[in-house]
Computed example of a mutant assay.
Amino acid sequence: MEGRMSTSKAKHTRSAPLLVKASSSDETSLDANELFTDLKEKWDAVENKPTVILYGGGAIVAVWLASTVVGAVNSVPLLPKIMELVGLGYTGWFVYRYLLFKSGRKELTTDIEAIKKKIAGTE
């Protein structure tokens, strides 16, 4: 009998953290509502909505197409392993070229900054 009582007490004390988790999910839903209102405000501020919709649709189609291509490549028996070896080789080259030595890290940093300036249009 005592074993059952201690088990029921343990179950009772375990349920308390679940109540805390439930209240944190309420906070998450409030954050989601704020997110939706922010997105709605930004969408209302967009002037050229058809272009944004076209680009979004194009991005979705591109992701779907890439997924299809990757699935097709993955179905070829030996090709995924070869691609994995190519990826590992490129990763090793990148680490050796840009991350291993201080001069390479500095070059990578300047290249990244130049790309940021091109994207931002401040160049």
Score class of each variant (00 low, 15 high):
105 R>I: 01
61 V>N: 02
100 L>F: 03
92 G>Q: 03
39 L>K: 07
94 F>R: 01
41 E>K: 08
121 G>F: 06
75 S>M: 10
86 V>H: 00
72 A>W: 06
97 R>F: 05
90 Y>R: 03
69 V>N: 10
80 P>F: 09
22 A>Q: 12
72 A>R: 07
44 D>K: 04
14 R>E: 15
95 V>M: 03
69 V>Y: 09
63 V>S: 11
107 E>R: 04
84 E>D: 06
53 I>W: 13
12 H>S: 14
90 Y>E: 05
45 A>I: 09
71 G>K: 06
3 G>H: 11
47 E>G: 11
2 E>I: 08
79 L>K: 00
109 T>F: 02
54 L>G: 13
56 G>D: 12
85 L>W: 12
24 S>I: 03
85 L>V: 13
14 R>S: 15
26 D>W: 14
11 K>F: 15
27 E>K: 13
76 V>P: 01
10 A>P: 11
102 K>I: 02
113 E>M: 10
94 F>V: 06
72 A>P: 04
52 V>G: 10
73 V>K: 03
8 S>V: 14
53 I>S: 13
69 V>E: 13
58 G>L: 11
17 P>D: 05
28 T>R: 11
92 G>L: 03
48 N>R: 13
32 A>Q: 10
12 H>D: 14
60 I>Y: 09
76 V>Q: 09
62 A>T: 08
38 D>R: 06
31 D>E: 10
9 K>Q: 12
87 G>Y: 01
39 L>E: 08
7 T>D: 15
106 K>H: 11
114 A>P: 00
4 R>P: 02
12 H>C: 13
109 T>G: 01
21 K>V: 11
6 S>R: 01
16 A>P: 02
22 A>D: 10
58 G>W: 06
3 G>N: 14
85 L>N: 10
98 Y>S: 00
8 S>Q: 14
98 Y>C: 00
88 L>S: 04
5 M>F: 14
90 Y>M: 06
46 V>G: 03
97 R>Q: 08
88 L>T: 00
39 L>D: 07
116 K>E: 08
70 V>P: 02
71 G>H: 06
85 L>D: 09
112 I>F: 03
10 A>C: 15
22 A>L: 12
69 V>I: 08
90 Y>N: 05
61 V>C: 03
86 V>Q: 03
115 I>C: 05
58 G>T: 07
67 S>H: 08
112 I>A: 02
14 R>P: 15
62 A>M: 07
109 T>P: 00
118 K>P: 01
2 E>C: 07
118 K>E: 01
15 S>E: 05
83 M>H: 09
52 V>C: 11
108 L>R: 00
112 I>H: 00
1 M>C: 10
104 G>T: 01
6 S>D: 02
70 V>N: 02
36 F>L: 13
33 N>Y: 12
64 W>P: 07
90 Y>C: 04
33 N>T: 12
35 L>S: 15
94 F>S: 06
7 T>L: 12
37 T>K: 10
94 F>K: 00
20 V>L: 15
108 L>P: 01
27 E>A: 14
29 S>T: 13
42 K>V: 08
28 T>S: 10
64 W>F: 13
